[in-house]
Design a protein around this nucleic acid. Structure first.
Length: 543
RNA sequence: GGGCCCGUAGCUCAAUUGGAUAGAGCAUCAGCCUUCUAAGCUGAGGGUUACGCGUUCGAUUCGCGUCGGGCCUACCA
């Protein structure tokens, strides 16, 4: 319909205002009384046409020739909006589309298989995932699903640093715990990893190797075992909320394959890297940065920037046309250097998108719980999932814009999980399933063709209209990387359905009406289920 | 000091990316189950969108300034 109106309004405008190249845009009015679609074209074009907005709007309407079986009313409102109201047939047609397309309703192939990489979580394996990581995990995965629904070929990737100081300290933390288990009395530094899981890893090593590792360096067996055990743990946690990565990349590989060295040499060759005070500097100032950045420390050890740049170049070399890095707010400072690095190497960095999510604050008993992996005073993602379940965790993390700080009241989430908003959505789905079971129970034939024109009650019409919005919502959420709007939308759908359910009985003596309302129920169930699958939450048949 | 994000109902957050009367969920109050699931529905109260300028037909949204909160600002990641 949008395209249909766009075409007609554009040509009307061309007759009235030759030479104008303004393309009319249409949107759904917030207030349903303002019709089904509205355009502000008259207000925008008024200046060029040298006509008052409302007057121009009238001229446009007079010029338009629209199909009266589709458009029932056109009116001018407010400062010059043109409101179009469709016949109910239009929305009934979309109901049929939903029933036909079923699990594919809402899918687009807009991106035509565009090779896309979403890098997310990417927490270093130094301890269990925190609730903060959970937000990035759920967000990254939901974005991936949205992109798949809009025709992207998505690779989910996890990158971690296993070459730096963090991992050395991790290895040494395990080593010290191991020595303690062997009976040595020694001091355990404050800035080492304090968590119990370190002792568990040490115990594993003790069980397997006895005291033979006494003189083993921290970076050998200790670090390896820690990385292995902790990663197994991380993957298990992610899997429990439906997050599975396709590819794991790490920093070490970039050194071993010479990719890091290659970057330095190339930057040097381009005179974009230089030596100073024993360190190697990248001329970041040439790319908008305030100061140049160190890429190799005077100790000879690279900073994270260098492998990060090398890694991103590999992303491009691997053929990704759209590259998405999901970062937490604490990493905001890192990505401009990476983009600058890519530019310096001669790549167009505009294909790299970096959505940044704000922190999750855990509130327990009215107090803020500060999280630090090192100090081990965090609430783990695992604990949270165990308490409230995967659906609640996913929905809670996705229902809010990533720009806002998320307050997670742990007590509330645990205690009142029955009142969590996700149940409101799932309940609508379960309710429909129940109606279907009931209908089958009383011998309703699902194959009776429904006469949709029987659906004319206000609650039926507005529910149908809401359902018809789904494809647009999927598209815009994918385009803006804003999955929370899908959660909002589904909440609306559930709301419209609950209302319809309350006012109208589906299964009655009236066979044709029953068939029509069953169609509406089935369509609602499809939209909810499709939406849930994008959000990664279950669609229960009963609750 | 500089950069990024935020400030909307008592609380947690939305607002179709500049649209018309700023909306939901909790919480409070008043109603609705002999009928397909009451984890639901209906109604009421609750707002100077932190504050001040500006941009224009029109600002919660864009720009500048002030105040307040969070995160960055290393030869840590």
């Amino acid at each position: 319909m949008k395209e249909y109106l766009k075409e007609h309004v554009t040509s009307a405008l061309a007759t009235l205002c030759p030479g104008s190249d303004i393309i009319p845009s249409f949107e759904k009015p917030r207030n349903p009384e303002h019709g089904d679609l509205t355009t502000n074209i008259a207000m925008i074009a008024a200046k060029q046409a040298k006509t008052a907005p409302r007057q121009l709007a009238q001229q446009i309407i007079d010029t338009l020739q629209l199909d009266s079986t589709l458009v029932v009313k056109i009116e001018i409102a407010g400062p010059g909006f043109i409101n179009f109201k469709f016949t109910d047939n239009v929305v009934r047609t979309s109901l049929q589309e939903i029933l036909q397309q079923e699990t594919n309703y809402g899918r687009h192939n807009l991106a035509h298989g565009k090779k896309t990489q979403v890098e997310f979580v990417s927490a270093n394996p130094t301890g269990p995932l925190t609730v903060g990581h959970g937000r990035g995990a759920v967000y990254g995965d939901t974005i991936s699903r949205l992109l798949e629904w809009t025709g992207h070929d998505v690779t989910r990737e996890y990158y971690f640093n296993n070459a730096g100081r963090q991992m050395r300290i991790l290895g040494d933390s395990v080593r010290l715990r191991y020595l303690q288990l062997l009976g040595d009395t020694l001091e355990f530094p404050e800035d080492y990893y304090q968590g119990e899981y370190i002792k568990d890893i040490a115990q594993t090593l003790l069980d397997e190797h006895g005291g033979k590792l006494r003189n083993e360096p921290a970076e050998g067996m200790f670090k390896q075992q820690a990385e292995k055990d902790i990663f197994a743990d991380i993957k298990k946690t992610l899997k429990s909320i439906g997050v599975v990565h396709d590819v794991f990349s790490n920093e070490n590989e970039l050194y071993e394959t010479g990719k890091v060295k290659e970057v330095i040499e190339e930057l040097r060759a381009k005179e974009l890297a230089y030596d100073l005070d024993g360190a190697v500097w990248f001329k970041a100032t040439q790319f908008g940065s305030e100061k140049d950045k160190v890429i190799v420390k005077s100790t000879g050890e690279p900073t994270y920037r260098l492998p990060d740049i090398a890694y991103h170049r590999e992303k491009i070399r691997r053929g990704f046309e759209l590259i998405i890095d999901v970062l937490g707010a604490d990493h905001v400072a890192t990505y401009p250097d990476v983009l600058a690095g890519l530019t310096a190497l001669g790549y167009d960095s505009s294909c790299v998108k970096v959505p940044i999510h704000q922190f999750v604050t855990i509130v327990q008993n009215g107090e803020v719980v500060k999280m630090s992996t090192r100090k081990a005073n965090f609430v783990t993602l695992d604990e949270l999932i165990a308490e409230v379940g995967s659906d609640v965790v996913r929905y809670f993390f996705i229902m809010r814009s990533i720009d806002s700080h998320l307050n997670f009241d742990l007590g509330l989430a645990k205690k009142q999980s029955d009142e969590n908003p996700v149940y409101y959505l799932q309940y609508a789905h379960a309710r429909i399933a129940s109606i279907i079971r009931h209908a089958e129970g009383v011998g309703i034939d699902r194959n009776v063709p429904a006469e949709l024109s029987l659906l004319n009650q206000p609650e039926e019409i507005s529910l149908m209209k809401k359902l018809a919005d789904f494809p647009d919502i999927v598209e815009s959420c994918a385009a803006t990387f804003e999955p929370h709007r899908l959660a909002d939308y589904l909440h609306d759908v559930a709301g419209q359905f609950h209302k319809f359910y309350h006012f109208h009985k589906v299964v009655t003596e009236d066979i044709p009406l029953t068939a029509a309302r069953m169609s509406l129920c089935l369509a609602t169930k499809i939209v909810l289920a499709n939406g849930f699958s994008i959000l990664g939450i279950s669609a229960p048949e009963r609750m």
